[in-house]
Design a protein around this nucleic acid. Structure first.
Length: 273
DNA sequence: TGACAGGTACATG
DNA sequence: CATGTACCTGTC
């Protein structure tokens, strides 16, 4: 009995750290990730990067269920902690009342550094789709193809093929995913090469893939490759640009981090319906 | 019942 | 190159 208790204590690590401009619920609802699970108030379970971590949040105090080393090596980068979001918020033109409101409404959103393959598949699923169904599809995909419920790697989905994916109810998107898994596995579409390209090169390369158009390519650049200047234009952003910026949006002003601005605008419209 | 959802491929002018 | 349309499927 005593032995078990000690063992449990020895294996149980937590690391508590102060982080500004981060809100897990805001991030979970922001539409960039689909696998944050709310365990209880202010406590989240996150499966990502083939790992699992639980995080409790009290304002700016975060307790991670891992040791300091894993926090520094994995989650610090995942949550984009090197980026100064206060400075970005400060840079927003206060004359632009819509963007200012959107930025304040989206306080705590950060642009995660997620796994490229997971982002590719997730945003193919996202096309012409709604968020609850996207989440459901991804959950089914993980359950069916990975014993630990982690995101299935390309070879597994390539082997499953369109037939194996059919029963998940992905609709016409299953053939896009099967095709992508295939070219990733046979090496004709190399994800490491993609990571070494600049934004324009990566976007062009992505657009050549079956099932990936301009919008999904931009999402992959932004969420999977951390080209934070990417500005995906979807139905929400299109609507915002038409209704609030009929004379044009000032892209130049926010060059270098347009993707973060896009997230504020997108989130504001998404949540306020 | 039919439109809608973080679009894309494909066919036309 | 710009516009139009079919497309899987769950939900309201």
């Amino acid at each position: 009995m005593l032995y078990c208790k000690k063992r449990k204590e020895r294996d149980f690590f937590v690391y508590t750290v102060t982080i500004n401009d981060m809100d897990l619920k805001q991030i979970a609802d922001s539409g960039q990730c689909f696998r944050f699970k709310n365990l209880e108030n202010d406590k989240w379970g996150i499966k990502a990067l083939n790992k699992y971590v639980e995080i409790s949040q009290q304002n700016t105090s975060f307790t991670f269920s891992c040791d300091k080393e894993e926090f520094l090596e994995v989650w610090s980068s995942y949550f984009d902690l090197a980026t100064d979001y206060a400075a970005i918020k400060e840079s927003v033109d206060r004359q632009d009342t819509y963007l200012t409101a959107a930025m304040e409404y989206g306080a705590g959103i950060r642009l995660l550094n997620q796994d490229l393959w997971e982002i590719l598949v997730s945003f193919i699923i996202s096309q012409n789709n709604n968020i609850p169904r996207i989440k459901k599809s991804i959950e089914l995909l993980c359950e069916k193809f990975d014993p630990d419920g982690q995101f299935p790697q390309a070879p597994i989905l390539a082997e499953a093929g369109e037939e194996g994916l059919k029963e998940l109810g992905l609709g016409y998107r299953d053939k896009y995913i099967a095709a992508l898994a295939k070219v990733v596995c046979d090496g004709s579409f190399n994800l490491d090469d993609l990571k070494s390209m600049d934004y324009d090169g990566a976007h062009e390369s992505l657009m050549k893939q079956f099932g990936i158009g301009k919008k999904v390519a931009d999402c992959v650049c932004l969420f999977g490759l951390h080209h934070i200047d990417a500005f995906p234009v979807d139905t929400h952003i299109k609507k915002i640009l038409n209704e609030h910026y009929p004379y044009g949006f000032c892209y130049e002003k926010y060059k270098g981090y347009l993707g973060i601005i896009q997230q504020y605008l997108f989130f504001y419209d998404l949540k306020r319906i």
